[in-house]
């Protein structure tokens, strides 16, 4: 067995171990990492920056804990950006755990000294409408009457009693919607049953698996911009200068990708070097 044949026969557990090392070691290192901001991420940031203070924005957290490593940093950074811009925020989830994830993000974001000083009040500056079953039909219902789609908020309070919601009827009252999505229902449904029906402005943050599938909506203008996976989250942290976990995680991401790329190259080389020689 020659060198290349030995390489092809390497135990997959060796590769797992190397990937694990590449992921774990960077946690204990602190080296600068250059993150270039892509146009779709910049577009989301620019749009939010242009919104006048007091504008109503909505964030729909359509994901659950398994996707949190990719999407939670996005939710945190986006909420922070909204609050620092003095925007009024409506939070909801088309996934049962989505609005819970939003509450976890709120807890983290509210620890920021600047936001603490703003003394943001629930019901006045932000609300969490919670989850309601119905997938895309919830979006359609919200297009005509948000109060009908979400009669009560996350805590069971009637939303008609919340000052922030009293003058909100449908998407006409909302300046910008941001969807953080890990699958169905998610960005597809927000575009198809929301944007193309009710003509509001939508930005999205997706898991990396979904990102290439929804990116045609950016080119077509159906999405203002897109944050793709952990990298998209890190880019948003870079452009907004609100550094959270995504930027730190990109160190591990970079190292682990280097290992994967190395093994793809070596595996292909070994395959071509041993082609016709294998029994």
């Amino acid at each position: 067995m020659n060198f290349w044949q030995k390489l092809l026969a390497v135990d997959r557990r060796v590769i797992f171990a190397l990937v694990a090392v590449a992921v774990i070691i960077p946690f204990f290192l602190s080296f600068p990492i250059k993150i270039t901001v892509s146009p779709p991420v910049q577009a989301v940031y620019d749009y939010i920056e242009k919104l006048p203070p007091g504008s109503l924005v909505m964030i729909s957290c359509d994901y659950d804990p398994p996707s949190a490593p990719e999407l939670q940093p996005m939710t945190e950074t986006m909420l922070k950006h909204f609050f620092l811009k003095d925007l009024k925020v409506i939070i909801l989830g088309l996934w049962p755990q989505g609005s819970v994830q939003a509450n976890i993000a709120l807890e983290v974001v509210m620890r920021d000294p600047i936001l603490k000083a703003k003394n943001l009040k629930y019901g006045v500056d932000y609300v969490n409408l919670g989850f309601t079953a119905g997938n895309e039909f919830v979006i359609i219902r919200m297009g005509t009457d948000i109060h009908a789609a979400f009669p009560v908020d996350f805590n069971g309070t009637k939303i008609a009693e919340l000052p922030l919601m009293q003058n909100v009827r449908n998407f006409d009252n909302i300046a910008f919607v941001f969807n953080v999505s890990a699958g169905y229902p998610g960005t597809y449904e927000w575009v198809i049953f929301g944007v193309d029906r009710y003509r509001f402005k939508l930005g999205a943050g997706n898991t990396a698996v979904q990102a290439p599938l929804v990116s045609p909506y950016v080119q077509s203008g159906q999405l203002i911009g897109l944050l793709g996976g952990m990298r998209g989250g890190a880019e948003y942290e870079e452009v907004s200068h609100y550094f959270g976990k995504a930027t730190g995680f990109m160190r591990s991401q970079t190292f682990s990708h280097a290992v994967v790329i190395f093994f793809i190259i070596v595996g292909n080389l070994a395959y071509f070097m041993t082609r016709g020689k294998r029994t």
Partner: peptide, 10 residues
């Protein structure tokens, strides 16, 4: 790959 790595990182 990026997505799966993100889960492992998390």
């Amino acid at each position: 790959v990026m997505s799966r790595m993100s889960l492992l990182i998390g």
